[in-house]
Design a protein around this nucleic acid. Structure first.
Lengths: 110, 110
DNA sequence: GTCTACATATAGAGAGCCTACATGTAGACT
DNA sequence: AGTCTACATGTAGGCTCTCTATATGTAGAC
């Protein structure tokens, strides 16, 4: 999976994975792998900064917890984040529809 | 349309639009608009450098022409570019499938 | 004592898309 | 003659995001 292809879609992925329940960063990475059938291996250097960015703009909120002696920062969707996810989903549909229509365009079309 | 979303998909769009016949830059921009129903307004500052990049890596070839007193640089797909377009199309399908599966994931899935 | 899994974080690189600007022709309209 | 719009190409610099590489530390298995 070409990294550049993910540009601008990372937010949607992260918000989506947090939709059902809060998760910490490491678990988010695993969830993305699972849901994508192992294809999506997003490095920590991408996920952690992205989560902080999404928190900074108010789509996520976080709190620290200690589980089994290990510290976790658990992220959850805010109301604003839930609205944003809706927007991301419709943007995704428009995006695939538009690009798809160009890629599939009949070779004989003017 | 969020500009970042196009990242990594521009090549596919340009190659696809040149699949049926050679076009010059300005006509490519118009073709993208048409095929996308007016949604895709790619600025010249994106298209011209991208075309040069694609020529540099061998997917496109170009030649100058003068039509109605105006100079045009007309681009056409090379054989290598045609193969690349195939690859771009299958990459696109994998991409939409993977992202789609994450975005649509059942809220109750683990 | 070592290795792997778990867990978070940052610095710096790299790439590409965008804004803004520069340049020039042709044709229509005033 | 002068202005405006459409046509047509191009570059410089900025911006943002993703990635690589690195750092740090705990827990548990072997």
């Amino acid at each position: 999976m070409n990294p550049d292809a993910l540009r601008g879609h990372m937010d949607a992925l992260l918000l989506s994975v947090l939709e059902a329940r809060p998760l910490h960063g490491y678990a988010i990475i695993e969830a993305l792998q699972e849901r994508s059938g192992g294809v999506l291996n997003v490095p920590t250097g991408t996920v952690y900064p992205a989560l902080r960015r999404l928190e900074r703009v108010g789509y996520l909120a976080s709190e620290w917890a200690t589980v089994g002696g290990r510290k976790r920062r658990t992220y959850r969707l805010t109301d604003s984040g839930r609205k944003q996810l809706e927007g991301e989903r419709s943007a995704w549909h428009e995006f695939t529809s538009v690009i798809g229509s160009v890629l599939r365009a009949d070779a004989t079309t003017t």
